[in-house]
Each structure stands twice: as structure tokens, then as C-alpha cells.
């Protein structure tokens, strides 16, 4: 498997930021009751992660170690503010809907996590790809949760009525606690799936064993 494919698989599944690394949980609770907001927010996170990783990786030989985190925060906030400016100018409705959530992209741990763990020691394009796929792994989980929450909480998907008139919305699905339950269920499902695969993977190549062994270590750290 080529390196790009390995990174894709790692960020989407074996080392997913949400259900394995347990990063970016706060925004999972906040935005996932509405598919449209979730889509825009997670796209913002994916783009910010991709481009901040690209920029930081390109600058890595110039950055003094003492101030590297300050520079990381500066670059990340730069991209978030750019996204905010673009939304305000070209998509004012979306910007109004998202309100403070755009600014809160800065606080998403995935972005700095990737900058520290990957971009610091990798080539710019590969870092861009790693950032983008991390964002996509985050997006995939959040969109899945948002489908359940919006469907049961509002009876709609992307604002379009799906459930019959007689359907009584589950108010709990709109509130943050339901995201806790759903995230926990996703983690349970993903970990059982990954654990179930391990015995088959054992006699395989050493590379695969290393990946399988890496997952529990990361979890322990998180």
C-alpha cells in the first residue's frame, strides 16, 4: 500500500481522530444536531487542518523550537480568520447561522495535533494530505451522528422533511447529551470492529501488526 493510501486508511479508520484519538469532541457535541451546519463546520476544519499542516511543514526548518507552538497557533488562527472573512463576504446566511462556531475551529485539537504529530516531521504535500484526511475522518463521524440527530430530533435531513407528519421529534436528540450517547456508541462499534479483525491480522505482515498495535497505545494516551 502506498504511503498516501496508508495515511488515508489511518486517518479514516485505524487512527480516526474521533473514535480512536478522542479529539475534537466539544464540537461534536455542539454542531451535530443539524446536517448543514455540521457539513460546513467540518469542511472548515478539514481545510484548516490541511492548509495549516501544509504551511507549517513548509516552514518547519525555519521555526525555532522555542516558539514552535506560538507559530502553530498563529498559522491555524490565520486560516480560521480567512474562512470567517470569506463566509461573511460570500455566504452571509451561513455565516450568521454558524455564528461563533467558525471562530471555535481554532480550538479544535485535531488541527494542532496533526501539526505537532505529523507536519513537523513530514514533507509539505504529504502533510497537506494528512491534514485533509484527518479532517475527512472527523467529518465522516460527525456527519453520521448528525444524520441520526437531525432525523430523530427534527424529522428532517438538510432541512427537508423526511419523517411523516405524525412523527413526534425526540427532543433529547437536539440537546448535547444525545451526542454523548451517539459518540460513545460509534466508539463502541468501531472498537469492536477493529478488535474483531485483530486475530485475522495476526499472521499477516509485520507492518500491519505494527498498525494494529499502535491503536491501543494511542487510546491509552488520549
Amino acid at each position: 500500500m502506498s504511503k498516501t493510501m496508508a495515511i488515508l486508511k489511518d486517518n479514516l479508520w485505524t487512527n480516526n481522530p474521533i473514535f480512536i484519538q478522542i479529539l475534537g469532541i466539544c464540537s461534536t457535541l455542539a454542531v451535530t444536531n443539524n446536517l448543514r451546519n455540521t457539513a460546513i463546520m467540518t469542511l472548515g476544519v478539514a481545510l484548516t487542518t490541511a492548509f495549516s499542516s501544509l504551511t507549517l511543514s513548509a516552514m518547519k526548518d525555519l521555526i525555532p523550537r522555542k516558539v514552535r507552538m506560538i507559530i502553530q497557533v498563529l498559522v491555524i488562527s490565520f486560516y480560521v480568520i480567512i474562512i470567517d472573512i470569506l463566509l461573511r463576504a460570500y455566504l452571509p446566511e451561513v455565516s450568521k447561522q454558524l455564528g461563533p462556531y467558525v471562530g471555535l475551529i481554532i480550538t479544535n485539537c485535531i488541527i494542532m495535533g496533526r501539526a505537532e504529530a505529523f507536519a513537523q516531521a513530514s514533507k509539505p504535500l504529504l502533510s497537506w494530505w494528512d491534514g485533509l484526511t484527518s479532517g475527512l475522518g472527523y467529518m465522516a463521524v460527525l456527519m453520521g451522528i448528525a444524520v441520526v440527530r437531525e432525523l430523530l430530533g427534527f424529522g428532517t435531513l438538510f432541512g427537508i422533511k423526511i419523517m411523516p407528519e405524525a412523527f413526534v421529534p425526540w427532543t433529547i436528540m437536539i440537546m448535547a447529551p444525545s451526542a454523548f450517547f451517539l459518540v460513545a456508541m460509534v466508539m463502541w462499534w468501531a472498537k469492536s470492529m477493529q478488535a474483531g479483525r485483530k486475530p485475522e491480522a495476526k499472521p499477516a505482515t509485520p507492518g500491519q501488526q505494527a498498525t494494529a498495535a499502535a491503536a491501543p497505545t494511542t487510546t491509552a494516551k488520549a
Binding site: I63, P64, K66, I71, I82, I85
Partner: peptide, 28 residues
């Protein structure tokens, strides 16, 4: 070096942000 580098990086990024803000001001 640390001071000069930090100053230069901040100046460049803030300049770009200021330009972006200025160019979309009328639209906003």
C-alpha cells in the same frame, strides 16, 4: 533569531489578513 523570526511571521500573516479584510469590507 527567535525574536526576528516571530516578528516577521506575525507581520506577514497579519498583513495578509488585513488585506483580505480590507478587500471584502464593502461586500460585508
Amino acid at each position: 533569531y527567535v525574536v526576528a523570526f516571530t516578528f516577521a511571521v506575525c507581520a506577514i500573516f497579519v498583513l495578509v489578513l488585513a488585506l483580505a479584510n480590507e478587500s471584502t469590507k464593502d461586500l460585508v
